[in-house]
């Protein structure tokens, strides 16, 4: 479903940062900002909440640890007990490397998968490009037309050095 956007184009990261702070002060909901490189402080200025990714990693890592211990205890001591090097069936020191590896394996793979899912990235995805130069040197601040006052927005962004303000309807989620 297509939505109407107001797009402000900037040519300086400091201008877009200042405009973002002002827009947040004035309670104007910003849809998104497209920048050619990461701008320090922009996340805080936009008020983006911290990602849940670290907790996904924690849970996946803990799962990996439990699975590793269960696997080793089951195979070494229950299913097919076999004496290795004269050690007891359940030898904690021998379990350490595998427990560590599976913790890392589960944690890392789940983190990558969760990262792609949270960012709605998948192979073959066609990203919507508002402006051909947004991956090169321009900064695009997008507002949803329905949720803001177009007059106010264009006044605010021009105050902070926006070089162009235009409207466009696009299918962006």
């Amino acid at each position: 479903m297509k939505k109407d956007f107001i797009l402000a184009t900037f040519e300086d990261d400091r201008h877009v940062l200042a405009a973002t702070k002002k827009a947040r002060d004035k309670n104007m909901p910003i849809f998104d900002i497209y920048t050619p490189f990461p701008v320090h402080g922009l996340d805080e200025a936009m008020g983006i909440k911290r990602s849940i990714l670290p907790y996904v990693t924690l849970v996946a890592g803990a799962m990996g640890l439990l699975i590793a211990i269960a696997l080793q205890v089951y195979t070494n001591a229950i299913d097919w007990p076999i004496i290795v090097g004269g050690k007891p069936f359940n030898s904690i020191p021998a379990f350490v490397p595998i427990s560590f590896e599976l913790t890392v394996l589960f944690g890392a793979h789940t983190t990558v998968a969760a990262f792609l899912a949270l960012n709605k990235l998948y192979p073959g995805k066609q990203p919507h490009i508002f402006h051909p130069e947004q991956t090169c040197h321009t900064f695009i601040m997008a507002f949803e037309k329905n949720s803001v006052n177009a007059e106010e927005v264009s006044q605010l962004v021009k105050e902070f050095g926006a070089v162009e303000v235009k409207e466009e309807s696009a299918d962006v989620k």
């Binding site: 090097g85 004269g86 050690k87 020191p93 021998a94 350490v96 490397p97």
Partner: peptide
């Protein structure tokens, strides 16, 4: 720590 412990424990 575990690197030192594990090898000594295993080799015995």
């Amino acid at each position: 720590w575990i690197s030192q412990y594990l090898l000594i424990w295993y080799a015995n």
